[in-house]
Design a protein around this nucleic acid. Structure first.
Length: 249
DNA sequence: AACACGGCCAACCGCCTCACG
DNA sequence: ACGTGAGGCGGTTGGCCGTGT
């Protein structure tokens, strides 16, 4: 209150895909300083982005504890189970998958799992068998979400004894995670990064293009030699954000 | 080779809740 | 008790890319 600036003052702010330089700046800043307040991050990190955009980029893409690669069959099955329980509460579902983001799970649901369920003759909303009249034609699938299924969705919401907005997570993300800041520091060795050249296997639309001079040349020269993000997977479940703030600041 | 189409996913939008003064 | 901003969340969009014609 009292004249606080809004986070998303859009004047002069950049939008759209992040560049490698921006990623680099954000990564460097957060690894060195933590997150004092997202609103302040863009200015302090030298980015022409709003705080929200920075937060999203960090959470969905730059976070070192992210698990890379496609969701496995087993994970998809578990998503289906959790969805039947929680509905479209993606963050809650994501909390059961360390290293996965709600956005990732949501995308997976919308692009793959929904289809999978429909092929199996199950309603993606109610998880119950679709009435025969609605299963048969692919043309019909196009309008699948209309009318009756929407009503079903409404019923589902009612049945959910609406948890929306409640913070009573049964299994909070990173709960019980031990502090491994030291391990992390050793692993990256490079937290004073020029190095924040965090390697990854997934060829981001921006990551390889326009590598800054801070990126080790061999990563540029030989993408096949890149250390995979998956190399971090053994840290899954034990990476605690707060740990970054220790020994890095 | 050129174009159309559909799938995928990163990023944005707008709303909601919570914390704080 | 109330107003406000920050952060969190889910829905949606737009652009890229692969595939088919």
């Amino acid at each position: 209150m009292m004249g606080r600036q809004t986070c998303c003052d859009k004047i002069g702010l950049k939008r759209g895909p992040w560049t490698i330089e921006e990623d680099h700046k954000l990564m460097n800043f957060i690894l060195k300083n933590g997150i004092p307040c997202w609103r302040l991050v863009p200015n302090l990190a030298g980015l022409l982005r709003c705080g929200k955009s920075c937060r999203l980029r960090w959470i969905n893409y730059l976070r070192p504890d992210l698990k890379r690669g496609a969701l496995t069959e087993a994970e998809e099955d578990m998503i289906i189970q959790l969805h039947s329980r929680f509905g479209n509460r993606w963050s809650k579902i994501a909390s059961h998958f360390p290293g996965r983001t709600d956005n990732e799970i949501k995308n997976c649901w919308n692009t793959r799992i929904k289809k999978k369920l429909k092929v199996l003759g199950l309603d993606p909303i109610t998880h119950k068998p679709i009435e025969r009249s609605r299963v048969f034609s692919t043309k019909d699938k196009g309008v699948f979400e209309s009318n009756s299924s929407r009503n079903q969705e409404n019923n589902f919401e009612l049945n959910l004894h609406d948890n929306r907005g409640s913070r009573d997570d049964e299994m909070p993300q990173r709960e019980g995670i031990s502090n491994i800041g030291q391990q992390f520091n050793e692993m990256w060795g490079c937290l004073d990064v020029g190095s924040s050249a965090i390697p990854q296997t997934k060829p981001s639309n921006t990551f390889y293009a326009g590598m800054s001079e801070d990126f080790p040349q061999h990563w540029i020269d030989s993408p096949n030699n890149l250390l995979s993000w998956d190399g971090l997977n053994h840290l899954e479940g034990i990476f605690l954000w707060e740990s970054l703030e220790i020994g890095v600041g």
